[in-house]
Amino acid sequence: MKVFNLICCFLFIVFAALQYNDPDPYVWVPIYMYTAVLCWLAAKKRYYPKLYLYGIGVYTLYAVYKVFDANGLVDWIKLHHAENIAGTMKAEQPWIEESREFFGLLILIAVLAINYYVAVKKRSEKNVMGQ
């Protein structure tokens, strides 16, 4: 888990840095940095299940919003026939940016869920060993 969390921490810091040329970096830099910090702490064997659940909850709500947003995931699938959103780095159309943001949130949710699972498992093992 240490290597997994160090890699995720590094990637999320890079993703946060790439947001500076984004139309809304004030939203995305904190989103990526929140998970990067939690990954760094998890790599140091410091787990915070409540913070993972908080992040999962907030990111899930935001992802649901991104699904139904005017230029969101549904729009991309129905109106634009799920056209390639990874062709270029520059998002020339709004549905490309919104869809990419949705998938970014899914990645963050997955990483937080993995760390939550590990934290709960470690806490459970610790309780069994302590009894």
Rank of each mutant, 00 (worst) to 15 (best):
L6C: 12
Y52C: 12
A36V: 00
N84P: 12
R100P: 11
D75I: 02
W76C: 12
S124N: 08
V74M: 12
E101V: 09
L6R: 09
F10W: 07
V37C: 11
F12K: 00
N21E: 05
R123C: 06
Y34F: 14
Y65K: 10
A17E: 02
Y62D: 10
W95G: 03
Y20M: 13
G87S: 08
H80W: 10
A70K: 08
K66Q: 12
R123P: 05
V29D: 08
L41Q: 05
W76D: 11
G87Y: 01
V128E: 13
Q19K: 12
K90C: 10
M33K: 01
Q131V: 12
H81T: 06
P49N: 03
Y26H: 09
A42H: 00
I114D: 03
G87K: 06
E98C: 06
Y26P: 02
A113L: 15
C9G: 07
C8E: 04
K121N: 14
F102E: 04
A119K: 04
I109T: 06
A119H: 03
M33T: 12
I13Q: 00
N84H: 06
F10P: 05
A42N: 01
F10T: 12
E98R: 09
Y62N: 07
T35W: 02
L51V: 05
C8Y: 00
E125T: 09
Q93Y: 09
I96V: 15
L18T: 15
R100H: 03
T35C: 10
T88G: 06
V67Y: 05
A42E: 02
N127M: 14
R123Q: 15
L112K: 03
F12T: 02
E97D: 04
L6E: 07
L112N: 11
T88E: 14
Y62H: 15
G130D: 09
V14S: 08
G72S: 10
K90Q: 09
I13T: 04
V67W: 03
M33A: 09
I107T: 14
L38Q: 05
D69Y: 11
W95S: 07
